[in-house]
Design a protein around this nucleic acid. Structure first.
Lengths: 157, 157
DNA sequence: ATAAATACGCAATATTTTTGCGTCATTCTG
DNA sequence: CAGAATGACGCAAAAATATTGCGTATTTAT
């Protein structure tokens, strides 16, 4: 159950870095202590799972963002498991999801440049087990980057 | 120029929430003040762009993650601009990128459930200007969620 | 090799977080 | 509907953390 204040807090916390709880409280109409306790409660409830620094990928040399769609040769339990644990083992694979449709996986990888992507391609991607087909799409430009989910208060009953 | 310590710090900061700088310093072999100054410097340099709370989407009712690929009827400057600014105006559209290949946009949206996606479809997606074709793929399962970029020290010269 | 610039650690100071506690509001029970 | 119980709040004190000054060491440039 997320009331209006929690929703506001979550929207703030997802965007504005570590502001003093006193200021957050003021923005949502609460004292610092009340605000603080709400945040802790949402952490304990598993709503807030953690905090992270956002970094600008190009400043650390990661200028290339690539989506890779992959279909497997087999859909057997073992094939999926093997594939997935291989995926998890590579830091360069940033995200991976199983998609509806053609039972495809889609992953997102970060590379320093095209040559580096080639390296990744050979060192990581080609080592993934059970791959039948692979198709890459480069992100030419980011129109909108992830900056948090839009949080709405839970419907009152 | 990112040395080994900065790289370590960035990897920590992207994952572990707000740890005291004293502890971070200890982990990378620095005093609290030195560590603190390095972090501030990386913020000032635009490497760290901010901090954010991570939240578990299903705990706030967003159980559905959908990728939507869209191609436009026109590639004219105005068509792209109009499309992009419309995209930015919808909170439910979490991310949007221009992809190589068929000059397609890909966006990611969050919905509460299938019925809610239908609402989004009608309320947001169908209102995007200049859309020639649209194809949605549902994320059935997340194998690996984004948890930060792998940061490597910049090559020493 | 020497001077300048940069980064460090320590210790003092300033902020922020965290907790105890009494009060008020809301919900449940009989 | 009244009374009790539960939950949330604000205030103020206490604890923890961040921030800064400063002298020293280390690295970089000349």
């Amino acid at each position: 159950m997320i009331d209006r204040i929690d929703a506001k807090l979550l929207n703030l916390l997802q965007r504005e870095g570590p502001k003093p709880v006193a200021e957050l409280g003021e923005r949502v109409g609460l004292s610092a202590s009340a605000c603080h306790r709400r945040i802790r409660a949402m952490e304990a409830a598993g709503i807030i799972t953690g905090y992270a620094a956002r970094i600008a990928p190009d400043t650390i040399g990661l200028g290339l963002d690539v989506f890779v769609d992959i279909s497997l040769t087999s859909q057997s339990e073992e094939a999926l498991t093997a594939f997935e644990s291989a995926v998890k083992s590579f830091d360069e694979i940033l995200e991976c999801q199983l998609l509806s449709g053609a039972s495809d996986y889609r992953l997102r990888v970060a590379a320093r440049n095209v040559a580096d992507f080639d390296r990744l391609h050979r060192h990581c991607l080609s080592r993934l087990p059970g791959v039948a087909a692979m198709h890459s799409a480069f992100a030419l430009r980011t129109i909108k980057g992830f900056e948090g989910y839009p949080v709405q208060p839970t419907e009152r009953r």
